[in-house]
């Protein structure tokens, strides 16, 4: 251990400001990089998931509409035959 007390560790032999400035700035930049990387990964996944869900909903709606149209057509056919 190079330092006797916590205060002398913070002081860094008079260079405390410069040492902690550079360590702090570096830590801040690296943490920023890590968080923005993780965030953009999450956003990319979420965006694709949203797109997939939207397409699935569209497909469902389309399938439903088709089924309804078919049912209607059949209904009209049966109506005409009953008349």
């Amino acid at each position: 251990m190079q330092f006797d007390s916590f205060a002398s560790f913070l002081d860094m032999g008079g260079y405390g400001f410069y040492v902690w400035l550079s360590f702090g700035a570096s830590a801040a930049l690296i943490l920023l990089l890590i968080f923005s990387t993780l965030l953009s990964h999450k956003n990319a996944r979420a965006n694709i998931a949203r797109q997939v869900k939207r397409e699935q909903r569209l497909q469902q709606a389309q399938a439903q509409a088709e089924a309804e149209a078919e049912a209607e057509a059949q209904a009209s056919v049966s109506e005409s035959t009953s008349q």
Partner: peptide, 24 residues
């Protein structure tokens, strides 16, 4: 680097910046 490495005989404790400056 911060606690156990010796201080430089010329630059004193400010030498500890070296351990992030040079790698980066």
């Amino acid at each position: 680097a911060l606690l156990f490495a010796p201080a430089d005989y010329q630059q004193g404790e400010s030498f500890r910046i070296f351990y992030i400056h040079v790698p980066s």
